[in-house]
Deep mutational scan, measured.
Amino acid sequence: MSGNGNAAATAEENSPKMRVIRVGTRKSQLARIQTDSVVATLKASYPGLQFEIIAMSTTGDKILDTALSKIGEKSLFTKELEHALEKNEVDLVVHSLKDLPTVLPPGFTIGAICKRENPHDAVVFHPKFVGKTLETLPEKSVVGTSSLRRAAQLQRKFPHLEFRSIRGNLNTRLRKLDEQQEFSAIILATAGLQRMGWHNRVGQILHPEECMYAVGQGALGVEVRAKDQDILDLVGVLHDPETLLRCIAERAFLRHLEGGCSVPVAVHTAMKDGQLYLTGGVWSLDGSDSIQETMQATIHVPAQHEDGPEDDPQLVGITARNIPRGPQLAAQNLGISLANLLLSKGAKNILDVARQLNDAH
């Protein structure tokens, strides 16, 4: 009898209710805020589980004197976190989706994509230029951005401005803007500013005609071990179906173009009346040469937790077992079709030249 009692006690200790789920994140304040929001949602869904947040620095956090596009290494903000995932030191990792490459290392998958916040870019102005827009900034004003995508589009749109690289986390960039006289304004992701509670610093939100956004911008991705079915089931509740389908289309477009950090590629997606609209573009580094096109596809946005595919093969690095396969494939095909259209119009040449120029500098 006593033996059975011990077995029952052991089973209770090993039951999922007692389990601590370890969540990996970057150390920056924004990353911690984003991770806290994901953990809060998981806690609400699984009140019996405990969650421990483990923060670590990544290569991208450490190399702050070089433009991201020049470092010449993929997975700048993800490699150390993936290493911890691989060694079973954490069970899942919360990322900004735009930091996750469209091809993940073997053994990993994006197990959830959370509801997207505003994906557009924002302009934050130096205190002396508050009330201005990019259009009304004085001639030769210097605007800071760490992104080739932003610089290429904005140089084309605002030729009277000069664009220079600015690195560091959000706090560091804002301090550089406010305390030094080098920059009249800087460009940042609206979602990051909003998550930090800095709505009052948003001086201008850039519309798609001015600057399309990065693939996955404004959404959070939760990376897990691809074979860890328990954790895949656990994080599945975080999937937002519309965000998922938009981001599958965007990531398929980028992957098929073979774009990345070192080339200016941008997108804009919208879901309306059962249609998914995808606009994508590529630019030369100075913005003088560009190709942009829009395509659409009829896609039914499923309700969360309709029964999805059981075999769960990944699409552009994403596993969404609780979302039907048909809409996911339709979104992926839309991204591939748009990429093929741009490639047929000469996108590869623009991107190759951009890559060579970026590598040469």
Rank of each mutant, 00 (worst) to 15 (best):
S75E: 05
E306G: 08
S146F: 10
I113T: 07
A330I: 00
E223A: 03
T78A: 07
H305F: 01
Q181I: 08
A270T: 07
E135F: 11
G111D: 03
F158Q: 10
A330F: 07
Q296P: 07
S344N: 14
R116C: 07
D352R: 11
T319R: 02
K62H: 02
Q328L: 09
D178Y: 13
A84P: 06
S290D: 06
L278Y: 01
R149C: 03
I205R: 07
A219P: 01
I248N: 07
T136L: 09
C114H: 05
K345N: 12
I291R: 15
D352C: 02
L161A: 05
P327Q: 15
A55T: 08
E182G: 15
N322Q: 10
K348G: 13
L42R: 01
V202N: 02
W283T: 05
V202Y: 08
G259P: 01
T172H: 06
E306V: 14
L315N: 04
F163T: 14
V130W: 06
L100Y: 12
E293Y: 07
A331C: 13
A320I: 01
L285H: 08
N200C: 12
I54K: 11
R156S: 13
G280E: 00
H95T: 04
P208H: 12
Y277V: 04
F129S: 08
F51D: 07
H95Y: 03
E52M: 03
K98H: 02
D91Q: 06
I205L: 13
S165C: 11
K272Q: 06
K70Y: 09
E89G: 09
A354D: 15
L154C: 13
G111I: 00
V224S: 15
R355V: 13
A191V: 00
F158H: 14
A112F: 00
G259W: 01
L343P: 04
P264M: 00
S141P: 04
K348N: 15
D61P: 03
D228C: 12
E258A: 05
Q204W: 03
L220V: 11
G274N: 00
C247I: 00
L177K: 01
Q275R: 12
Y213I: 02
I113W: 05
T145I: 04
R251P: 06
A55H: 12
L276Q: 05
S262R: 15
P138K: 10
R173Q: 01
A252F: 01
G192C: 11
I299A: 11
K140P: 12
G260V: 07
I336G: 03
Q304K: 14
E117W: 12
V202G: 10
G48V: 10
I110L: 09
L245Y: 14
G259K: 15
P47S: 11
R251A: 00
N88F: 12
R246E: 02
P138T: 10
G346T: 08
H120Q: 08
Q217A: 06
R116N: 04
D233G: 07
D289L: 08
L278V: 05
W198N: 13
H256K: 06
N169W: 05
D289E: 09
L85N: 01
Q181Y: 14
L234S: 03
M212F: 15
H305W: 09
G48P: 05
P309I: 06
S141E: 09
A44Y: 13
A112T: 09
E73H: 15
V123Q: 02
Q328A: 06
I187F: 10
G111A: 05
G72E: 13
E89D: 11
R156F: 05
L148I: 14
